[in-house]
Design a protein around this nucleic acid. Structure first.
Length: 365
DNA sequence: TCTGGGGTCCTCCGCCTG
DNA sequence: TCTGCAGGCGGAGGACCC
């Protein structure tokens, strides 16, 4: 397999700069309200000089760079640019797995039989994307997704890194563990606690140490990846398996009526989404976040899917009440999600019909 | 009064059933 | 009739990703 990972450089910020060229020379932060509870979605390279990074709170970003320009994300605009980018990429490499608006994997082997030709293909992709959109992207090429992904991050912006076959482990070994996809803050902490700071050290872990440190198949998977072993193929696009809405309040909310109102508003949006996509959901989940950032969720499943806003809202409110009965207090966030989709809508029942739950499949009736 | 929103996947636990 | 066990499944939470 010869696979490339393509990553658009500071994508949201780059689009904003294209839309308003006056922003180009300024530190630019795409994200939430710097005077509220928002976080940084993307910062341009000028802003990154001040230490501003994705996921940092906007208030912190403002402290680091008081003269930065803050703009709210405009996902509709980014989707339009993204569509042009991926159409363009597909004209060079037909088989693609998109992994978001701004990144994805390319089956380079399909058009380049060997690594000698892979560089030319990758360069052709970069040239085509820049020609169609004026956006720059970075690419990594390797024998697996994980190697390509780590490689694409090496020479940003506008870089190209090729890892020849047989050199994967050697390439990965010096990098910090946090650069490996699948290692987040928790796993990083555990690994560092035992002095494991590089992918080389992770790759060298014996079975015993690995089983103690990262039990389960996740540990074996991460060690394999650190060795450059990653059998994941490129996947075709798949249907979403859940939809949710959530909102962080400007100030923590303890008023139950207000919380119920918020949940019903979200339930309305979810129902609209379900109806427009002709689906019904069997599972409703309510999520709450307390001021100390701890999260609780409560969920319930119906025997038959529903797309009814009132029903989803009722269930979401009842689940919220359950969560608050277990732990009361003001909330920082509430959210509602639906999952377990049936492809068909709930059938309308005549007035007076027995609507008690029964173990039947809507599709059978 | 640092820390969004929208997702996926995995694991663990308890309950139910054969 | 009781008990133990295994498997399926729902619920809850953790971790991670963009």
């Amino acid at each position: 397999m010869i696979v490339a990972h393509l990553d658009l450089d500071a994508f949201f910020a780059a689009v904003e700069e294209l839309e308003d060229p006056a922003l180009r020379a300024k530190p630019l932060v795409v994200g939430g309200d710097p005077h509220g509870r928002g976080v940084v979605s993307t910062a341009n390279y000028e802003a990154r000089k001040f230490g501003i990074r994705s996921a940092m709170s906007c208030a912190e970003a403002l402290r680091r760079c008081p003269h930065a320009v803050f703009v709210r994300p405009r996902h509709t605009v980014y989707r339009e640019y993204s569509a042009v980018v991926w159409d363009t990429v597909a004209s060079v490499v037909p088989t693609i797995e998109r992994a978001g608006l701004d990144e994805g994997y390319l089956d380079v082997g399909e058009v380049a039989p060997d690594f000698a030709r892979a560089r030319a293909v990758a360069e052709a992709v970069q040239t085509a994307v820049r020609g169609a959109t004026s956006l720059s992207c970075s690419l990594g090429v390797g024998t697996s997704k994980v190697v390509a992904k780590v490689a694409s991050d090496r020479r940003k912006p506008g870089g190209l890194t090729i890892v020849p076959p047989g050199r994967e482990a050697e390439f990965l070994a010096p990098f910090d563990i946090r650069l490996l996809p699948g290692i987040g803050p928790r796993t990083e902490e555990r690994l560092r606690g035992l002095g494991i700071a590089t992918l080389g050290a992770l790759a060298a872990l014996g079975d015993g140490d690995l089983a103690t440190l990262l039990p389960g198949k996740n540990g074996r998977m991460l060690r394999d990846r650190a060795r450059g072993i990653d059998p994941r193929p490129l996947e075709p696009p798949s249907e979403r398996i859940s939809i949710s809405h959530e909102e962080t309040f400007e100030r923590d909310v303890g008023d139950l009526e207000r919380l119920h109102e918020e949940l019903r508003r979200m339930a309305d949006r979810l129902a609209e989404h379900l109806i427009s996509s002709g689906r019904a959901a069997r599972t409703v989940t309510t999520k709450v976040r307390y001021p100390d950032f701890s999260i609780r969720s409560r969920s319930t499943s119906l025997p038959v899917g529903t797309d009814d806003a009132q029903r989803i809202g009722d269930l979401a409110c009842a689940l919220l009440d359950r969560a608050l009965a277990d732990r009361a207090g003001p909330l920082r966030l509430v959210g509602v999600g639906v999952s377990g989709f049936d492809p068909y809508r709930q059938l309308a029942l005549p007035v007076g019909a027995d609507t008690r739950p029964r173990a039947v499949d809507a599709r059978a009736s």
